[in-house]
Design a protein around this nucleic acid. Structure first.
Length: 498
DNA sequence: TCTGGGGTCCTCACCCTC
DNA sequence: TCTGGAGGGTGAGGACCC
């Protein structure tokens, strides 16, 4: 436990929503809700204006729309958020080599390791300068917490929000924490919070009074000891700059529950391929393949299989995932499928052929012994196929642009319909005449675009046919910076329409 | 028309080996 | 030869975080 408050926790305020407001001037000061727009989408971030209506993260999007019917609902644009995050993280690394990113919008910094702060006064000065630098570089507000430990620095930044800075002086920790809800402490979620509440413990002070033995009895050894120390303000976890990934996974929630076993198998294969892509991109291989299935009633089960050695071979992962699926009852419907790989290594064991062949032989033997029910269902078995027709995977769609063509062998014989271009709300576009803008909405063959850019005044709205050849998807523009020479000024100030 | 996606960590049960 | 722990590996599920 260090005395000097030189651990800094940075938290960007309502990050995704703030980036959208910065890049779309007409949304400044308005309720903005970022999340999945499908029937099963949830809110990723809401602007402070939307939060006043009761909208918050993880809330179903349908409920958020009911609470805040005039809010702008946008899909997340992760490539843009990542670019902004890179700028912020670079500023943090100027302060210290010990920077621990927690997500795109949060990080810990050990200021002492960077030699930028050794006491309260210099830490405060560093924190203020950082906030100013972030505002100048990105146009966004950030909150900063300073304390002697990670837990307290995070509590401090939470208290400082929005757009603030708070330092917790050494010696004041317990008094500050005592009246706070147990849910303030990291690791206390809904389940543990409810568990403690039933025992009459609702504040951090009561948690400290309960004593270590009582907490261990209630929530188990590891959690109980940790909780008691946190309640006393004790936390000696170091800031760790590099963390090795331990697993890679992909999952999809479907707009409509899947019933057709053939379709479910195909989705698992597709997810296995996507997972291997991600695995390879990260430079890893893995030894344990995990299949995740969430059923119609939201019950979730996982099945896993450990191979003899790590692999990044798509065929091996596909086969393992398919074997795991065979052991799962999917009658009643499936709302989510996922495929993951754990037990990561940075090499592959080159007996993959053997693994693949062995798996094949095993599967063949099983199919032979199973006889009747086994392998491929006849087409007639897929009576529920119609229910899943609408474009399959739900959840937040990829950032912007027309949807990808799905690769589904069983659909290959269908006549290819003339594909209508789809424009996701919030995605970036460029018009040959009017310049850069973003999609405000689309439907019945029309797309409405607002022509504005970061730093411009609120722009003009125009409507086009969805197949207008002069309209193209485009990359996001930087939040701060001059417009490129020769570009048409975006829209120009006009009175709000509609 | 409730309830995403990508992670980490912990606990428990079971099996196997020593 | 039998038995009982200890301990590791594996599989499954839950809680939590952003």
């Amino acid at each position: 436990m260090r005395a000097a408050p030189t651990i800094l926790h940075l938290d960007m305020d309502a990050f995704y929503a703030s980036v959208e407001q910065a890049s779309k001037p007409s949304l400044r000061g308005k309720a903005v809700i970022v999340g999945g727009l499908g029937p099963r989408g949830v809110v990723a971030t809401a602007s402070y204006e939307a939060r006043r209506f009761g909208v918050h993260s993880a809330m179903p999007m349908a409920q958020a729309r009911r609470l805040c019917p005039n809010g702008a609902c946008l899909i997340p644009r992760f490539s843009l958020y990542r670019a902004v995050s890179d700028v912020v993280m670079a500023l943090l690394r100027e302060l210290s080599p010990l920077v621990e990113p927690l997500s795109l919008d949060e990080a810990f910094v050990d200021l002492e390791a960077g030699g930028t702060a050794f006491d309260a006064e210099s830490a405060l000065e560093t924190g203020q300068r950082l906030r100013a630098d972030i505002l100048a570089a990105t146009g966004l507000n950030a909150s900063v917490g300073l304390a002697g430990s990670k837990m307290l620095a995070k509590v401090a930044s939470e208290e400082a929000k929005p757009d603030g800075l708070l330092l917790i002086e050494p010696g004041t920790e317990r008094a500050l924490l005592a009246p706070m809800s147990v849910r303030t402490l990291p690791g206390v979620g809904p389940a543990t919070g409810e568990h403690l509440r039933r025992a009459g413990i609702t504040t951090v002070g009561e948690l400290a009074e309960a004593g270590e033995d009582e907490l261990v009895r209630m929530v188990g050894r590891s959690h109980g000891v940790g909780l008691y120390r946190m309640a006393l303000g004790l936390d000696d976890r170091p800031v760790v700059a590099e963390r090795d990934a331990k697993s890679v996974s992909v999952e999809d929630t479907f707009d409509v529950d899947l019933h057709d076993r053939v379709r479910i198998r195909n989705e698992v294969q597709r997810l296995a391929d996507r997972c291997v892509h991600r695995l390879r991109d990260s430079g890893h291989s893995g030894r344990t393949i995990v299949l995740k299935v969430r059923r119609y009633d939201f019950s979730t089960l996982t099945r896993s299989e450990t191979l003899r050695g790590p692999t990044d071979d798509p065929a091996v992962v596909r086969e393992a995932a398919a074997r795991l699926l065979e052991a799962v009852d999917t009658t009643g419907g499936v709302r989510l499928l996922g495929v993951g790989v754990t037990g990561l290594a940075d090499y592959t064991q080159e007996d993959l052929f053997a693994q693949s062949m062995a798996a094949e032989a095993e599967a063949a033997a099983e199919a032979a012994s199973a006889g009747e029910g086994g392998a491929i269902e006849p087409a007639g078995a897929a009576e529920a196929a119609g229910t899943g027709g609408a474009g399959g995977s739900g959840g937040p769609a990829g950032p912007g642009g027309p949807a990808e063509a799905p690769e589904r062998a069983e659909l290959a014989d269908e006549p290819e319909p003339a594909r209508e271009r789809r424009w996701a709300a919030g995605s970036d576009v460029r018009h040959a005449v009017y310049g850069p803008g973003w999609v405000q909405g689309s439907g019945v063959g029309r797309v409405t675009v607002r022509f504005e850019r970061p730093g411009s005044p609120p722009g003009r709205v125009r409507t086009f046919r969805v197949d207008d050849p002069e309209l193209e998807p485009s990359d996001p523009l930087p939040l701060v910076g001059e417009p490129a020479a020769g570009e048409p000024a975006a829209g120009g100030p006009v009175p709000e329409e509609g």
